[in-house]
Nucleic acid binder design. Structure first.
Length: 430
RNA sequence: GCGGCUAUAGUUCAGUGGCAGAACGCCUGUCUGUGGCACAGGAUGUCGAGGGUUCGAUCCCCUCUAGCCGCCCCA
C-alpha cells in the first residue's frame, strides 16, 4: 500500500521554516499598520463568476488554472453552483468592498490580506499549486482621492520599505503604465499593425501571441526577436493625456521619496483588470519566477463586478518567493532558545519544570532537558537548541544559585535564582 | 498543458545484471557535574511505486508518481 503524501504542488512547512514565515508576516503586519492599513479576510472559495468577470475569461488563470467544481445541490429544487478556490485575492476584496458598501463611508479603504491562493499550474521552484500571497488594496470613491497618483506612489514607497525591513536586498522596481482600457485597445491595434509585416521572422511563440495576445510579444525572451521587438511601438505613445499626466505624477512623487525604479516599456501584466500604473518588484536567484510581487491600478474593476465606480491600486507578493529569497540571502536563521535547563538526575526533573515555568512566565524561550541524560549529553543537546545552558543540580537546588554557561563565550557564571530571568534576557555573549 | 534531467540511509550523494556503500548527522563508550576536538564501537534502507525482460533487476525496458530546470504563465 502506498503511503499518503502531500498532493502535488502543496507542501508542509515544518518549524524550521515557519519561523521565517512568521517573521515575514509579522514584518508585513507592522509595516501595514504604520501606513494605516487594516486586515481583511475573504473566503478561500468564491462563486466562479467572480474570477471569470474580475480576472478575465481569456487569461490563463481563468481559462486553465482554476480549481473549480460544481457544488452539490441539497434539494431537487436547488440548482448547483459553480465554485472556485481563489487564484488571487483582489477580486475577492473588491467583491467584499461592493457587498459591504464600503464606498458609502466616503473614505478610502486600505485593506491588506495574507493567505493561501490556488492555481493548477505545473509546480517548480517558486511556483506551487497552493501558495501564499501578502497583498494590499487601496480603493474608494473618486471623491476620496482613490484615483490620485499619490496613492500609487505611496503604495510603491511602502513596498520598498517593506522589502527593506524584511531584509531583502537587491530588488528592482520595474514600472510602466498601460493606460486606460481605451488606450490599451488602441495600443493593441497599433501592435497588431506593426507586427503583421514582421511576425513571420519571429519565434513560433510570438507568431501565436501576435494573434492571441499581442501584448505578450513584448515579454518574449528569445534573443533573435529582440531587435524586432525594439522596433515595435511602445505603449507610452498610445496613452491619452490624462494617463500621461497621471504617470508623470507617480514618478515625480517616487523621485521625491527617493524610491528607485526602472521604466520598463515592456511590462504588461497578465490580468485583464489592470489600468494605468503597473509594476513588478523582481529579484535574481528565483530562476524563471523572478517576480517577488506584482501589482497595479484597476480603475474599472468594481464596475466590472457590478459595483459603483471605485478606482483602486494594489499588489500581491508571493510569500513563498520571499522565503526563498531570504533563505538564499542567508538572512534566515532559526532562532535559538534563551536557555536550556539541564537537571542532573531524574530526581531534579520536577524542580527543573518549576524553574522552566518561572522563566517562561518571564517571557523567555526555554528548552527543558531531562535529568536522565548524562551531563555531556545535556550539553550536546543544549548547544544545538539554545544559547545558554542552566545547570540545575543538588548544589544549585540547595544554594539557590544556578550555574549558567554561555555557548558563545564559553563563560560560566553563578547566578542567584532571583536574578536568573534578567540575566538570561541579556543578549547572548554578554 | 509541453520539453529535458533526476529519484539509493535522517541529509548530501557514489555504485554494481549476482549479499547495499561513503561522508555528514544520529546512538553508545573512553568521560557517574561540563559541549564544540579526538579516538573506539554501533544502528539505519521495501535502492520512489507498479509491471516486464532475465536463472537472478537497485542496475536494462515500459507505465505511473514526485522533485528540479526550461517553456507557457504568474506571486
Amino acid at each position: 500500500m502506498s503511503t499518503l503524501k502531500a498532493v502535488r504542488g502543496t507542501r508542509d512547512l515544518l518549524p524550521s521554516e515557519t519561523a521565517l514565515w512568521n517573521r515575514i508576516e509579522a514584518t508585513a503586519r507592522a509595516v501595514f499598520a504604520r501606513y494605516n492599513f487594516g486586515e481583511i479576510r475573504t473566503p478561500v472559495f468564491e462563486d466562479t463568476a467572480l474570477f471569470a468577470r474580475g480576472v478575465g475569461e481569456e487569461t490563463d488563470i481563468v481559462s486553465k488554472e482554476m480549481y473549480t467544481w460544481e457544488d452539490r445541490a441539497r434539494a431537487q429544487s436547488e440548482k448547483t453552483q459553480s465554485l472556485t478556490l481563489r487564484p488571487e485575492n483582489t477580486a475577492g476584496v473588491v467583491r467584499a468592498y461592493i457587498e459591504h458598501q464600503l464606498g458609502e463611508t466616503g473614505q478610502l479603504q486600505k485593506l491588506y490580506y495574507i493567505g493561501p491562493q490556488f492555481r493548477r499550474e505545473r509546480p517548480q521552484k517558486g511556483r506551487y499549486r497552493q501558495f501564499s500571497q501578502i497583498g494590499a488594496e487601496v480603493i474608494g470613491p473618486t471623491s476620496a482621492g482613490s484615483e490620485s497618483p499619490l496613492r500609487d506612489a505611496e503604495v510603491l514607497e511602502m513596498l520598498a520599505t517593506l522589502l527593506d525591513e524584511m531584509g531583502i536586498t537587491g530588488w528592482t522596481l520595474e514600472l510602466n503604465s498601460v493606460g486606460s482600457a481605451a488606450d490599451r485597445a488602441r495600443y493593441n491595434e497599433a501592435l497588431r499593425a506593426a507586427l503583421a509585416p514582421v511576425v513571420d521572422k519571429m519565434c513560433v511563440d510570438c507568431q501565436r501571441r501576435a494573434v492571441t495576445n499581442p501584448l505578450r510579444v513584448l515579454d518574449c525572451k528569445v534573443a533573435a526577436d529582440q531587435p524586432i521587438i525594439d522596433t515595435l511601438p511602445v505603449i507610452s505613445d498610445s496613452l491619452d493625456e490624462a494617463s500621461r499626466v497621471h504617470f508623470a505624477a507617480v514618478t515625480a512623487a517616487l523621485d521625491a521619496a527617493g524610491v528607485a525604479y526602472t521604466r520598463n516599456h515592456r511590462l504588461v501584466r497578465g490580468l485583464d483588470y489592470y489600468t494605468r500604473t503597473t509594476f513588478e518588484f523582481t529579484h535574481g536567484g528565483l530562476g524563471a519566477q523572478n517576480a517577488l510581487l506584482g501589482g497595479g491600478r484597476y480603475d474599472g474593476l468594481s464596475e466590472m463586478l457590478g459595483g459603483p465606480r471605485a478606482p483602486g491600486i494594489g499588489f500581491a507578493m508571493g510569500e513563498d518567493r520571499l522565503v526563498l529569497t531570504l533563505q538564499a540571502l542567508e538572512a534566515a536563521h532559526a532562532p535559538k532558545a534563551d536557555a536550556f535547563i539541564a537537571p542532573l538526575g531524574e530526581g531534579l526533573n520536577p524542580a527543573a519544570l518549576a524553574l522552566a515555568k518561572e522563566l517562561r512566565r518571564a517571557g523567555l524561550r526555554v528548552e527543558l532537558g531531562e535529568g536522565g541524560f548524562r551531563l555531556k549529553k545535556s550539553f550536546e543537546a543544549a548547544d544545538k537548541t539554545a544559547r545558554r545552558i542552566v545547570i540545575m543540580g543538588e548544589d544549585e537546588l540547595q544554594s539557590g544559585i544556578l550555574t549558567v554557561k554561555d555557548f558563545a563565550t564559553g563563560l560560566q557564571t553563578k547566578v542567584p535564582r532571583a536574578e536568573l530571568a534578567v540575566f538570561l534576557s541579556k543578549p547572548a555573549g554578554e
